[in-house]
Amino acid sequence: MPKPFRFGVVAPLTTDVATWRDRARRIADLGYSTLLVPDFPQTQPAPGPMLATAAAHTDLRVGTWVYATPFRPAWTTAWEAHSLTLMTDGRFEMGIGTGRPGIEHELRDKGQPDVPPNERLTRIRETVTTLRELDGLDRHTPVAMAVLGRRARALAAELADTVTFALGDQPRTEVAHLAREFHSTAVELALAVPVVGDTVAPHMAPPDTDPTALRAADALTVLPDDPAAAAEEIQRRRDEMGFSYFIFGAHVAEELAPMVAELAGR
């Protein structure tokens, strides 16, 4: 049986704090399940305080989308995640991945050493293992992994509650092949959609992303901006590939609210 639909919003802090808190409340009022923040050091406050604030002012689930392991030692990341689970009464979801393209330049700019790809996966394993130890038997912090390569997908099948693919312009057929690996598992498949119509969400895709090219490639990182057409396409993606959790940028939360009201929980 397909999993029920749920919808999240990536909401970086790009305004003053009071305006951002009001946006979080509005996202909750519109029927979204989860408020997510990216892990872009020094471009906004750290994820932990932001998410604790959002959880204190709304009944939303909150999560990282996603912790970038090259910036984050395993034990301290697990400790922060477990602490957020405690402070949000179990409403925190830890998203984690090996890092976005070009992150080695960010590391160098901040005086941090680069982390080789194999070590990044090892760090994810260590983070999740430590988190499970800290949670103990009484708690379970859901883990969402952003993956693409074969070894990362295998690790996600072993450790993750939710899996998303780090997509760009891959066509529908290629993504369907990736999704099939998880059809026999209990993993929730998530799809981050940074482009709606011709608008690109900040911190979800590069600013030079070309919506026209994505549509021409039949990529799943783009949706139409008409809510009815978006709802039809989202249902197709669940029916054909199993995606049930969809994540959008905060800039389109109002625009897609009719679709969320129609599909959430179904």
Rank of each mutant, 00 (worst) to 15 (best):
E126F: 04
V128S: 01
V128D: 02
T129C: 08
T129M: 03
T130Y: 06
R132V: 01
R132S: 02
E133G: 03
L134R: 06
L134A: 06
L134G: 07
D135Y: 05
D135F: 01
G136H: 00
G136T: 03
L137N: 10
D138E: 13
R139E: 15
H140M: 04
T141F: 02
P142Q: 02
V143C: 02
A144W: 05
A144Y: 05
A146L: 12
A146T: 11
L148I: 05
G149M: 05
R150I: 05
R150F: 02
R151I: 02
R151Y: 04
R153L: 00
A154Q: 14
L155G: 06
A157V: 03
L159M: 14
D161K: 00
V163Q: 04
T164D: 03
A166D: 15
L167Y: 06
G168W: 11
G168C: 07
G168F: 11
P171Y: 12
R172D: 14
T173V: 13
T173C: 07
E174M: 13
E174Y: 12
L178G: 03
A179H: 05
R180W: 00
R180Q: 12
R180V: 00
E181C: 01
S184G: 04
E188I: 06
E188W: 02
L189Q: 00
L189A: 03
L189P: 02
A190R: 07
L191T: 10
A192W: 00
A192G: 13
V195W: 07
G197M: 02
D198M: 09
D198W: 03
D198H: 12
T199M: 11
V200A: 08
V200N: 09
H203Q: 15
A205K: 07
P207K: 06
P207A: 12
P207E: 03
D208W: 12
T209G: 14
T209C: 13
D210Q: 01
D210L: 04
P211W: 04
A213E: 15
L214N: 13
R215M: 07
R215A: 13
A217D: 15
T221A: 10
T221H: 08
V222P: 09
L223H: 11
P224A: 10
D225E: 14
D225M: 09
D225W: 06
P227F: 07
P227S: 08
A228M: 01
A228V: 14
A231W: 05
E232L: 10
E232N: 09
I234V: 15
I234M: 14
R236S: 13
R237K: 09
D239E: 15
E240D: 15
M241A: 12
G242A: 10
F243Q: 11
S244W: 08
Y245K: 10
Y245E: 10
F246I: 10
F246S: 12
I247E: 04
F248A: 10
F248H: 10
A250E: 15
V252W: 01
